[in-house]
Design a protein around this nucleic acid. Structure first.
Length: 851
RNA sequence: GCCGAAGUGGCGGAAUUGGUAGACGCGCACGACUCAAAAUCGUGUAUCGCAAGGUGUGAGGGUUCGACUCCCUCCUUCGGCACCA
């Protein structure tokens, strides 16, 4: 037998495929399938994770191909971003050179996987031919009014010297460098994703996505239904009028959608507007709290008598990092002296506080405090000795079945109150009855929510999701196509002048001015105003790389088109994506941005559907041999190139597929012995070449047809592990019996999905001249399987006592009779009464006996 | 705290969705080949028991002729969100 020389075999066929341009996508597909894997960042080293992403998805792509589908399986690079720029600053390399040489290197490595990627699709986000369209899209968003340039509180990473989106924070620190993130006020480009919040939630229903991914997105968007209440504000001299400029102000609180004008009533008086999901506790409000950074606080300044104390607290809050705020949750705050809020129902004067436990960007940035029924308000009230008014009690059913509605006067109320005074937890459940609330007494929480809202409030919905801040003060990114003119304002670059090309720069350095290095390239910054022609300046911020990656799959289908983002024909043909495979880290960011961008494109008539990804799965992680996440510091990193060198790409592909189900995002430790096991299996397959005969035994026919009839289910469910085990089972049978070339060929076409090189080598060594890639899966001959003896389990009282081998044509009665006369079964039923006989066709017989 | 996923041999994991639990692979044991080892091949491998047989899918209960699978209670692990009112 010939040696299984994987190196020779793999390089030979890779060359052959490339020279024939075998994987060219069919431009006129009859039955398309668009398979997408998240494109990588060109870091320069290909790790096991890339293999797991592309080589295993390639098994699925080849399966689709052998079914006769026209598959689009593209590849590209998400090539803008910080690592290139950091390498440039640190090592004096040009980010472009660094990036593009990495790309070259990685393409070679990816090619070693033996995938059926069509390299003509290649998309690179830092190519001007690509980012021309990123800029074009930005302008379409701008025209549609979804882009705002506004003063914003931003997350500032002092080490990366750039702004970070909330999505780029991990527990209050920068996801890249782990520095504590600071708050800063800057003018930023924001995209109003919040306008799409409802659709982003509601349209999830129609998608064939795992439940947990949908839930994570819903959670992230954080829709909650509730009520606005407004509290008039009274100073020592009566109600407080708003300054004129405030009423019309477009001023916004952070990047939040509530304009300050909302805090002014029809008479021009200032109010505090709060959001709550618990309007049923409204009569228990004993104070209100405003976020310290809220613009309203500044507006109220003239009426506040302890301003210096207030100012100190605000300063402290601004200095606090998000991390501080998250780790230290002790309640602090300052009362705004000199003003009071008026409870809308009772007119009672209640104190107003500022405290950093209220988040400026959520709801209205102000809350009504109900210390009796909210943990945080309770803690705050305890600390500052504020009134606690109980208005809810558990809606319990007593042992005798009656509701205890006459509650207020009982000892139970006293006990509740005592519990609070003793510092116990407040009752926060919403299966409750209302008391102590005037006309609303006796209602359930559910009823009170409606009743109180319709009398005093306004129904509303809020979201945790915030607008997408896309400005980055970095060089290596897509330039934002805007021009600032002193007389005309901010003007978009005309579309026929796109792309705004990122200039080559010899030296890239970050300064402390909070600006992109581009700002110091005066030659580039200088521009003329597209409107009035006078001297103007280019925008120097670049786009968040999540913008680049939010639409790349729309470019794969027509990557070289220089007049449109993609042709109508290509869009109609290939969109949407049939299957999208990616990492779980992208569940709430990339995947949400991409859906959002696609929806906007849909609204603009650019794409034909409103959801881009019909099916999605998050793949898992390959862990080190020690079961820990691979990391250089732990020294447990598996270098795929080394393994490929030793056992071949085919083995690595198949081993990765064999580790566990692909659709479940499980984490699998790398087992060097497992790799050897696959190698052993491949060698056995290879050695079968010499056993090929001219005819098939019955066993061989059963083996191959069983495989063919079962394998599609495994593929459809992304269970490449059980799929491979079925190939092994088939080989275990064929090894022991006589089989024909025809049978072996049928096997090889399935085998090819896992081991394309070896399968092709065997294919040609048994005398086939066409490429195995061009073959279709064979359909199973079910008559052979139907002809087999059936194995029928016989149970007595639920326990299996024997297994009968019966002729498949026997009737139910005949099988039952056989079962009853079987000596093994007789041992258990002899002399007993059979109460029930159950027959499950082709599976089992079950007797229930008595006595 | 809230949301989600999952608990099966020494290990990775199977089980046609209520029908013979542990497929396939790894590991391990014994045997063959070898002077020996490696590789390879063969046999065995949930557990208690000499056996007949019993027990077993995180724990406890329930439904059913029959439960890894369905229902209830609880425990544990992992992932996401988290002072979101």
């Amino acid at each position: 037998m010939k040696d299984y020389n994987h190196k020779e075999i793999e390089s030979k066929w890779q060359k052959e495929w490339e020279s024939k341009n075998l994987f060219k996508t069919n431009p006129n597909p009859k039955d398309k399938s668009y398979l997408l894997v998240e494109f990588p960042y060109p870091s320069g080293d290909l790790h096991v994770g890339h293999w797991y992403a592309f080589a295993v998805t390639d098994i699925f792509a080849r399966y689709m191909h052998h079914l006769g589908k026209d598959v689009l399986f593209p590849f590209g690079f998400d090539s803008f971003g910080l690592p290139a720029e950091n390498a440039a600053i640190k090592r004096g390399l040009n980010p472009k050179t660094w990036t593009y040489s990495n790309i070259e290197k990685m393409i070679e490595q990816v090619k070693s996987m033996g995938t059926m990627i069509d390299w003509d699709t290649k998309v690179v986000t830092s190519d001007p031919e690509y980012y021309k369209w990123t800029q074009w899209l930005f302008l379409q968003f701008y025209k549609k009014g979804l882009v705002k340039h506004e003063q914003t509180h931003v997350n500032w990473c002092p080490s990366c010297k750039t702004v970070l989106a909330n999505e780029q924070l991990e527990g209050g620190v920068c996801e890249r460098c782990s520095s504590a993130v600071e708050q800063k006020e800057m003018k930023q480009w924001n995209i109003e994703i919040t306008k799409y919040a409802d659709r982003l939630i509601d349209d999830l229903d129609s998608l064939n996505w795992p439940h947990h991914i949908k839930e994570a997105q819903k959670n992230w968007i954080g829709r909650s239904h509730g009520t606005f209440f407004t509290f008039d504000i009274k100073g020592t001299g009566g109600v407080i009028p708003a300054p004129n400029d405030v009423i019309l102000a477009e001023a916004r609180i952070q990047d939040h959608q509530t304009p300050l004008a909302d805090f002014t009533n029809a008479q021009g008086n200032l109010q505090i507007k709060v959001f709550t999901t618990r309007p049923d506790t409204f009569m228990g409000v004993t104070y209100v709290v405003v976020a310290p950074e809220h613009d309203l606080v500044q507006t109220l300044k003239p009426s506040i008598s302890n301003w210096s104390e207030v100012q100190t607290y605000i300063d402290q809050t601004n200095k606090k990092t998000d991390l501080d705020r998250q780790t230290n949750k002790d309640k602090t705050g300052v009362e705004l002296k000199g003003i009071k809020a008026l409870h809308p129902a009772t007119g009672r004067e209640i104190p107003v506080f500022i405290s950093d436990y209220v988040i400026a960007t959520y709801g209205t940035g102000c809350v009504m405090a109900v210390p009796a029924h909210d943990d945080r308000d309770f803690e705050f009230a305890q600390k500052y000795n504020l009134e606690i008014k109980v208005v809810l009690r558990p809606n319990v059913i007593r042992v005798d079945g009656s509701f205890n509605k006459d509650f207020d006067s009982t000892e139970e109320l006293t006990k509740l109150n005592e519990d609070y005074l003793n510092g116990k937890k407040p009752f926060v459940g919403d299966n409750a009855l209302i008391f102590n609330s005037g006309e609303f007494n006796g209602l359930t929480s559910e009823q009170a929510k409606d009743a109180i809202t319709s009398k005093y409030g306004e129904k509303t919905t809020t979201y945790k999701l915030q607008d997408w801040s896309v400005s980055r003060q970095r060089y290596w990114g897509c330039p934002i196509p805007m021009i600032h003119c002193t007389s005309c304002g901010t003007i978009p670059v005309p579309e026929d002048q796109l792309p705004v090309v990122l200039p080559d720069m010899d030296k890239i350095e970050m300064r402390d001015d909070g600006k992109s290095p581009l700002a110091h390239n005066h030659e580039w910054v200088e521009a003329s105003c597209p409107q009035c022609g006078s001297k103007a300046e280019r925008e120097t911020d670049t786009l968040d790389t999540f913008v680049d990656s939010s639409w790349y799959y729309t470019r794969y289908i027509d990557p070289k088109n220089d007049t449109e983002i993609a042709s109508e024909q290509a869009k109609k043909t290939w969109l949407p994506i049939d299957f999208y495979s990616g990492g779980s880290e992208h569940t709430t960011r990339h995947l949400l941005y991409a859906r959002f961008v696609y929806k906007v494109m849909y609204d603009l008539g650019i794409v034909p559907q409103s959801e881009p990804f019909n099916k999605r799965n998050n793949r898992g992680l390959i862990l080190g041999t020690d079961g820990d996440k691979m990391s250089k510091s732990k020294g447990n990193v598996i270098n795929p190139d080394e393994v490929v060198e030793r056992v071949g790409a085919d083995v690595v592909r198949a081993y990765l597929a064999f580790m566990g189900p692909y659709g479940e995002a499980g984490n699998y430790p790398w087992d060097p012995n497992g790799v050897v096991g696959i190698r052993r299996f491949f060698e056995r397959v290879y050695s079968l070449v010499e056993k090929v005969s001219t005819q098939d035994s019955k066993e061989a026919l059963v083996a191959i047809n069983t495989l063919l009839s079962q394998i599609t289910t495994d593929f459809e469910q992304l269970k490449f592990n059980t799929g491979l085990s079925k190939l092994m089972v088939c080989i275990n049978s064929l090894e022991k019996t006589e089989f024909s070339k025809d049978t072996f060929k049928k096997f090889l076409v399935v085998f090819e999905t896992y081991a394309p090189h070896l399968a092709q080598e065997i294919w040609s060594s048994i005398g086939e001249s066409d490429l195995i890639y061009n073959q279709l899966f064979s359909t199973p001959d079910v008559s052979i399987l139907a002809d087999q003896k059936l194995k029928i389990a016989v149970q007595v009282n639920g326990k299996t006592r024997t297994v009968l081998e019966v002729d498949p044509n026997l009737s139910k009665e005949e099988i039952l009779a056989q079962a009853k006369s079987n000596p093994e079964v007789l041992r258990w039923i002899e002399g007993k009464e059979i109460v029930k006989e159950i027959y499950v066709p082709q599976k089992l017989v079950s007797f229930v006996i008595k006595g």
